[in-house]
């Protein structure tokens, strides 16, 4: 049953992406990408990743939709018709996809408890995390305590991106009054 729910959600996401790729109105594209993010958040709940689902719903469907709309407000809202049919990109991506599908042949099956991912460090986090940190949510314990360096790096990346955006957009656009001034 759980597998069925996940697979239905994945199918809906694939449909949303196909429609998105064929749409030329950028407003519709942005709304579709918000829809895609919500489907992704729901799929994450079905995959037991509640923290990720909450982040994806707030970030992917909320903030990034607002930012894309804000950027669209400053640009033109219709995509130009492509000059020629995109057969070459289609062939490249299709063949790369087929190669990747070939690569999945030997990967462990969905929800295989014996898969290597469940055998390495995760059992230790689950067994000792709550005792060592006193935090029952293992995701928070790993995020803030075991992998604190990692999170420090991620926070610094967010800070750097913010600084870059401030540097790019802080200066006002040159107006006609500025151009006339020497």
């Amino acid at each position: 049953m759980e597998t069925l729910i996940v697979n239905v959600l994945l199918t809906l996401m694939m449909l949303a992406v196909v429609v998105l790729a064929r749409t030329r109105n950028l407003f519709a594209v942005i709304v579709l990408s918000g829809l895609y993010s919500f489907l992704m958040a729901t799929a994450m709940v079905a995959l037991d990743a509640v923290d990720v689902a909450m982040t994806e719903a707030a970030v992917g469907a909320g903030i990034s939709t607002v930012l894309l709309l804000g950027a669209l407000h400053l640009c033109r809202s219709e995509e130009a018709k492509p000059a020629h049919k995109p057969w070459l990109p289609l062939a490249v991506t299709a063949s790369a996809g087929l190669l990747l599908v070939y690569g999945t042949w030997d990967l462990p099956a969905f929800s295989d408890p014996e898969a290597p991912i469940h055998k390495h460090v995760a059992p230790r986090y689950l067994a000792d995390g709550p005792r060592e940190t006193g935090v029952p949510n293992v995701v928070t314990a790993v995020l803030a305590s075991y992998r604190g360096f990692d999170t420090l790096g991620e926070t610094t990346v967010v800070f750097t991106a913010g600084a870059g955006i401030i540097a790019l957009l802080r200066r006002r656009r040159r107006t006609t009054a500025d151009k006339e001034a020497p």
Partner: peptide
């Protein structure tokens, strides 16, 4: 507990600041 509390607070402050600043700029 103390370390995790302050670190989560730092993350929240930076993330909130960056998102808001970006929105203000756009």
């Amino acid at each position: 507990h103390r370390g995790i509390f302050w670190i989560e607070l730092g993350v929240a402050i930076t993330v909130c600041g960056v998102m808001l600043k970006v929105y203000y700029l756009f």
